[in-house]
């Protein structure tokens, strides 16, 4: 018999608790989406989350692995994906995306914690390539019609969007379910900070780099207004707090987290100006995901005793 190793006491945190914290932090964004885009937003979220959790459960059964669904991570992935889809998306596409995230992006990568890419974002990238029309036409709050002209489309011209900065901030513009209402996103983000599920390094570096890149490349527009519109339109704010911070696909070293966040933010601004789609935050973060282990390797935390305090 081997005796148990120290430490003999453990803090009460659990993986399930971390995941429940993220689900709770996503609730304001989902509620805002339901308010802005109607109850169909809730149906999309339910279908996507159920498909993701169901696919993971089936995989576990088929692979004769212990059921990992209880840890809540599949629900987080499914809900994250749903919040980056338009409320008008066909439900079968939402279900396909959820299942793709669980099976291809997560299970085949080795399961929770082993995925190089954020599974929700990778699944969104897949849907965007496979069904571009369904993912780039959005319901507009207060109107019945679908429109593919979100404020970001205006900015491709380039021009400041028709919507005011305040409309962008509160989210009464066309867009995906969880991405338009900035106060709801910040509420969730602050909750994650307070619960210490995330550190502020990645979101702040992301948003700072995005704003700075926009200020430096204003495409002939007033730089401050341009930067504000870049921050508050599209999926940048949501992605900064909830997508880039997916811990399995992000670095763990504090300095590497800053570099990773800044890389994703700067790439978002650059790809928005140069990419095929008006919104490129998905690809910007996936690229940063690919760099995250290298960043951890290169930017270790300052070793104890190696810094200025070391000298006598």
């Amino acid at each position: 018999m081997t005796l148990p190793s120290s430490p003999h006491i453990r803090a009460p945190h659990t993986t399930g608790g971390v995941m429940r914290g993220v689900l709770l932090a996503l609730a304001p964004g989902l509620a805002a989406g339901a308010f802005l885009f109607g109850p169909r937003a809730l149906v999309v979220a339910l279908v996507c989350t159920a498909a993701c959790a169901g696919a993971e459960a089936l995989f576990c059964l088929a692979a004769r692995r212990p059921l990992a669904v209880a840890d809540g991570s599949a629900a987080v992935t499914g809900l994250l994906l749903a919040l980056t889809l338009p409320a008008s998306v066909p439900l079968w596409i939402a279900a396909l995306g959820g299942a793709f995230a669980a099976l291809v992006c997560k299970a085949l990568a080795g399961g929770i914690g082993r995925n190089v890419f954020n599974p929700a974002l990778a699944a969104r990238a897949f849907l965007l390539l496979a069904f571009p029309a369904a993912l780039t036409r959005f319901p507009v709050p207060g109107a019945d019609a679908l429109s593919s002209a979100t404020p970001l489309h205006d900015m491709v011209r380039p021009a400041l969007p028709d919507a005011s900065v305040w409309q962008l901030f509160f989210g009464s513009v066309g867009g995906c379910i969880g991405e338009t209402c900035v106060p709801a996103i910040l509420l969730g983000g602050i909750y994650l900070l307070a619960r210490r599920v995330i550190s502020p390094r990645i979101p702040l570096a992301f948003l700072g780099a995005l704003a700075l890149t926009a200020l430096l490349t204003p495409h002939g527009q007033p730089p401050l207004a341009w930067a504000a519109c870049q921050l508050f339109s599209g999926g940048a704010m949501f992605a900064a707090w909830f997508m880039a911070t997916d811990c399995a696909a992000a670095p763990a070293s504090p300095r590497a987290q800053l570099a990773y966040g800044a890389l994703a933010g700067a790439l978002t601004a650059l790809l928005r100006g140069a990419g095929l789609y008006p919104e490129s935050v998905t690809y910007a973060i996936l690229l940063a995901n690919a760099a995250s282990w290298a960043l951890d390797w290169l930017l270790l935390p300052g070793r104890f005793g190696a810094g200025e305090g070391a000298a006598v």
Partner: peptide
């Protein structure tokens, strides 16, 4: 035995 890389 499953690290989620949360960084705590």
């Amino acid at each position: 035995d499953v690290c989620i890389r949360c960084g705590k």
